[in-house]
């Protein structure tokens, strides 16, 4: 490769590298704004702004889902296995909503509970045929796998 070309190649790599560092620093500074949701631990630690629309993400804690039989009202705990946030919501839940499922809820904290205006289900990266799930459940491996996915 002749020296002139080599020089141009180094200039390009230098410029793209510098640009990468600049963008990287900006993203690092903005990282809290890029995160889609807060975790229950961040809420318990007071890191989330109060009385403002925020999102909380975590798992629906087992045995905490309460449905009002006369309305669409539902209450459940969102957990990251360290802290829980009590969520109340009135509306239609996504098909994937169930205990042990990852969810992202949008809303605001008021009087100690989180009043959600939107509930989204979060899907993990694992795909399985139903027969495999059944076999895993019987041998007690399913919960172990779910724990790993988080």
């Amino acid at each position: 490769m002749n020296p002139k070309r080599k020089q141009r190649l180094y200039v390009i790599f230098g410029l793209v590298g510098g640009l990468g560092v600049a963008v990287g620093l900006v993203m690092y500074a903005l990282s809290q704004n890029i995160n889609l949701f807060f975790t229950p631990t961040q809420i318990a630690g007071g890191q989330a702004p109060e009385a403002q629309m925020i999102r909380v993400g975590g798992m629906v804690a087992e045995g905490t889902v309460y449905r009002n039989p006369e309305s669409l009202e539902v209450a459940f705990d969102v957990t990251d296995f360290d802290h829980n946030v009590r969520v109340t919501y009135s509306g239609i839940l996504p098909d994937l909503f169930r205990e042990g499922q990852g969810v992202v809820v949008q809303g605001r904290v008021s009087q100690g509970t989180f009043q959600a205006t939107e509930v989204l289900a979060k899907h993990d990266e694992n795909y399985m045929p139903p027969e495999v799930t059944e076999a895993l459940r019987q041998s007690g491996q399913l919960d172990k796998m779910k724990g790993m996915g988080q």
Binding site: F38, H123, Y127, P129
Partner: peptide, 30 residues
């Protein structure tokens, strides 16, 4: 940024199911 967005930040989009370095997160039939 696209590739690592699901690892660097909390996102609704799940992480990759197929990776060059790891076993796929689904059975071979899929």
């Amino acid at each position: 940024i696209i590739k690592y967005s699901v690892e660097w930040w909390n996102t609704l989009h799940q992480p990759a199911s197929l990776k060059l370095t790891e076993k796929p997160a689904m059975p071979a039939s899929m």
